[in-house]
Each structure stands twice: as C-alpha cells, then as structure tokens.
Nucleic acid binder design. Structure first.
Lengths: 219, 219
DNA sequence: ACTCTTGCCTAACGAGTGTTAGGGAGGCAG
DNA sequence: CTGCCTCCCTAACACTCGTTAGGCAAGAGT
C-alpha cells in the first residue's frame, strides 16, 4: 500500500497540518499560478521535502481542490441560508452582498485561485465545483424574482440581474487589497448599496430611510 | 546574429503570420493556461516546429504579451474616444458599455488570457499593461463625476462607481459563450441598461424616453 | 519489550520545459 | 548564375516537472 493510498483512506486525522499546507499552497498558487508553482516550491515554503507532501495529499491537484473548496463549497454553505432567512428582501440582499464581499476579503488567496485555476481541475472535480457555483447563482435569481414579485425590487429579467450582481460583487477579488482606500467592511457596505440600486431596490429617490450624502468627495 | 534578434529588428514584415500564430497561442493559453501550454504544443497546433516559433517571436512571453495587447491596449484606444465624444452622458455611457461587452464577445480568447495570465508577464511589461488599465478606469471615474455634476447621474462616490461598473461589465468574460441564452449584442444592450441604473442614471422611474418592459419573462 | 502508525527523509524515474545552434529549400534582386 | 533573405527544419542543452520506492526516527498502544 502506497503512502498516497494510505493518506486517502486515513481521513481527516491531522486536519490542522493539512490546512496549514493548503494555505501555503494557496498563497503560492495565487502568486505564480497553479502551473507556475512546483511541488518542490510548495515544499520549500512549508519547510519540508517535496515527497513529504504526498504523505498528506495524493497529488498536486488535491492541493488545488482543497484551496478551491474554501470558496466554492464553504461560501455557498454560509451564504445560502441568508436568502431563506428573516428580514425583508432588501435587508437580505444587503446581508448577502456584505457577506460575499467580506468573504473575499477574508480569503484572498483562495478566492484568487478559485477565480482563475478552475481549468486545472480534472473534469469530475470541475463539475463538482461548478455545481456549487450554479446553485448560488440560481438561488439568487429565484430570490430576485420573488423580491420583484413582492414589489421590493424591479428586475426585468431576474436571472440576468443575478448574473450582473454576481459579476459586480465578485469584482473586488480582482483588485481589492488590504491597506487600500477602503477597508473591506466599508467596501462591502457600499457595494451592498450599489447592488440594491442595480436591482431597482432603491425606489427611485431616497428609499425608506436615509438620503444620499457625499457628492464626489474624492476623485 | 541570431534568428530571435533578427526577428526583433525586422518589424512588422509578416504581420499576418504573426497574428495567426498569436491567435493560436491565445486559444491554447485560454484552454490550458500560460504555464500549462508548451511551445511544442503551440507549434503543433500551428503545424510548425517549436523552434520555428522563435523566427517570429523572441520568447514565449512575447506571444503572451501580444495576446494581452489585443485587450488592454486596443480596447482603451477604441473606447476612450467615446467618453470624450458627442451625446449626453447617458448616451455615452450606454455606448461605452455596449462597446465593452461587444469587445469581450469578439475577442474571447484574448480577454480570458488578459484576465488571468497577467502575472506571467515580466514586471516591466506588466506595468505597461496596467497603465492602460488604470487609464480606462480613471477616465470612467472622471466621466461619472462630470455626469453627476451635470445632473444625469447620481453617484455618491464616482471613483467607486467606476469600479463597480467595470466589475459588472467585465463579468461576461467569465461566463458568456456563443450559443447561450443571449447573443452578445443583446447582452451588451441589457448590461448597458443595468449600468445606467447602477450609476443612478435612470431617474427613479422611466427616464426621458422608454419604460420598463418584460417582467420576469424567463427564469 | 513489542509492534504499529505517523511524519518525514533521500534518491531516483521518465517525461517535458524554454531555448539555441546550425543548416537547407525556395524565391527574388542584381 | 550569384548572393541574400525568409521561413522552416533537426538535434541538442540544461533544467525542471510530478511522482514513487523505500527507509528511518519518534511516539503511542498493548
């Protein structure tokens, strides 16, 4: 029985060490790309020998998959309940967007990797990941349709609006970094307001509560 | 004098062949990633020997750079004049978004590559590309600020709104493909309308002209 | 004291990497 | 016919790649 096989069967015995190694790999994948990083480079960054990685993971691909799960599996699990939870449609959308953007800020390496290294996965694993992604997108589409039905939103085409909202709130993954103009919480809040506007949830002029402030404060 | 040096000095003698090879490389980079494709694979796809590629390009990186220029240089050159052109702010924004999304549809391989292989460029080339990108973003920010000043838009923070609009209209690069639910022109038109809404250019209820149609036509 | 497991090691495998040296066939200019 | 240029070739160099075989030391269970 090979080490790799033993590893696969053993289950999550030393989950902590695994997570540690995945974090190192994520960082390197982010910096240089999946194919741009070798097992030897990952090993060196973890102060270990390349062969020793195979004690924890069956292959390089497994390292990638674990990185991606942080985004595409865990995000859906955390976020979907929001849409089915309490509060008005508007409140729930705001919570979703804030959670989403916050998740990007809290898992930058994994998000970057999940955003551009999917094609390095084998077809089966790719499928598995995309199922999560589609579920998220579909749920948001249904939510926007229901919110429109309820009169809180005004989406001509909720399915397309869901794509537009997701495109927008995934955007910070491409450019946000800590120490920039906006802290991630601030950004999340502003993007939530913009998302609301995008789906017509702002009711023309100042909605229920507060009004517009701060006109072109910085440029 | 080596072949590579000669190539560099020769200029655009056989530009057609170069463009042909760049297109082949773009397609492969898109499918398998820059580091996932070897010179031999590009050569095979072009029915040529690997070494022969060095007659046209000094290095693999030059092939990548040429792919990226199609997006990050040519797009800015085509699109910026729109913002400084004729028409109301709203009309110009619509034209910009339509042109942007249309460009994605017309240059899918190059966009995909430009979106995720920037880090494979050397620092100097990376800088050059990012200058174009920042110029585009900055110009849009200024445009939204001016449009707000003029009362056509309602952006609390034009610089952030520019980012949000760009995040949204770059999105189709991640998911649109020919033969899907929407043709690229249709998508471009709808995203233009959504962008207008995002910057508060829709004036609460139906703006100047047309009204809303098609409520949840499909889901 | 015994074995078993865990976590790591060294050494090596075959295959694939970007790149270069050098040459040959065909066309065009003088 | 001669000489040059364009475009492509074969062969090779020096690495690097993911992965595996096999072993060794420390600790836990009995």
């Amino acid at each position: 029985m090979s080490q790799a096989q033993a590893t696969r069967l053993r289950g999550a015995r030393s989950a902590a060490r695994r997570a540690e190694l995945v974090a190192v790999a994520s960082r390197l994948f982010r910096e240089r790309g999946y194919h741009g990083v070798g097992m030897r480079a990952i090993a060196e960054a973890a102060d270990i020998q390349a062969a020793s990685l195979y004690h924890h993971f069956a292959s390089k691909e497994e390292l990638l998959l674990e990185s991606i799960y942080v985004v595409d599996r865990d995000l859906v699990v955390d976020q979907l309940p929001i849409l089915e939870g309490e509060g008005s449609y508007r409140e729930r959308l705001v919570r979703l967007v804030r959670g989403h953007v916050g998740h990007i800020g809290a898992n930058r390496d994994a998000w970057w990797v999940a955003g551009r290294e999917l094609r390095a996965l084998s077809p089966e694993k790719l499928d598995e990941v995309q199922v999560y992604r589609r579920r998220y997108q579909h749920a948001l589409g249904e939510f926007l349709a229901a919110g429109t039905e309820a009169g809180e939103f005004a989406c001509d085409d909720p399915r397309l609006s869901a794509l537009a909202v997701l495109d927008m709130i995934n955007g910070p993954n491409e450019w946000w970094e800590p120490g920039g103009r906006l802290a991630i919480d601030e950004l999340a809040a502003r993007y939530a307001a913009l998302a609301l506007r995008l789906v017509g949830g702002e009711a023309g002029d100042p909605p229920p509560g507060q009004a517009r402030k701060r006109r072109s404060s910085a440029r």
